[in-house]
Design a protein around this nucleic acid. Structure first.
Lengths: 140, 140
DNA sequence: ATGTTAATTGCAATAACCTTGCAATAGCCT
DNA sequence: AGGCTATTGCAAGGTTATTGCAATTAACAT
């Protein structure tokens, strides 16, 4: 219910540990898939946590800057999602085109590919995004 | 300067061949990287093609529905891009984090992976998106 | 504990991107 | 050429995200 990483990170950045930051991070820790700002806001409201939507936007930015949370932009969704980074290995997602269910993929086939791309393009590769879409077991 | 595919596709869908649709498709055919709606609009204005921004939005939707154009959503850009599909093989992109340059990648390592993912998740995989980010030769 | 200082919050307003409603325009068919 | 109706331009509206500012509150010193 209380994150040492959060306190440490905020302090190191000259920022403050607040109720809202703990509430948002805690919600993300309990949520097993990437969630939108609106979903964070609505879920906190259900739990009677008083927070403004704007504060949620600002908070996910702070958590992202601290490296505690990752921003996930799924194809054609029109809004960002966020998921906890701490304690999770690098992974990608697959999303159902019909019901919107998002499932984690625990493999990433791109480590070897990166070197090939660097040789081909003369870029230094820093990051990548990968997403699959299709039909989930219920909708197929 | 005139696309048979466009005429054929539009007719088949009970739609009309118009000056603006030809102008947008033609611009995309001449542009070697994915462009935003605003870029399409500005480039056409430079070429003295009279067209409204709203019409550009509507036109890229039509071209996408016809399968002539692909929508590309790059990570954290906040707007869609579009590129010509006709005559181009399946590919992905790498984008420079500093100057924004987008370069095509002519390889796709995901065909084999798809089967593994289908076995793992019980999804039927329909599509995927892949994007690399990093630093281009000029900015590295 | 209490006061001081500055980061944070909530609210309203604004921005960016995209869509919709509707009258005027212009393809397309006969 | 004339008529039907898809398309366009303009204005308005929608959604997601950001910014300005006064009120609040965390953090620190006394």
């Amino acid at each position: 219910m209380h994150s040492a990483k959060l306190t440490k990170g905020l302090r190191a950045a000259g920022r403050r540990v607040t109720r809202t930051r703990e509430a948002v991070l805690n919600l993300l820790e309990r949520t097993p898939h990437p969630v939108s700002v609106t979903e964070i806001f609505e879920n906190l409201q259900k739990e009677k946590v008083a927070i403004d939507l704007v504060t949620v936007y600002r908070t996910v930015h702070v958590l992202k800057d601290l490296g505690l949370v990752a921003q996930i932009d799924l194809h054609q969704e029109g809004h960002a999602r966020y998921e906890i980074k701490e304690g999770r290995q690098h992974h990608h997602h697959i999303r159902c085109q019909l019901c919107g269910t998002i499932v984690d993929l625990l493999l990433c086939p791109l480590k070897k590919i990166t070197k090939i791309i660097e040789a081909q393009t003369q870029f230094i590769v820093d990051d990548h995004t990968l997403e699959f879409t299709g039909f989930c077991p219920k909708c197929r």
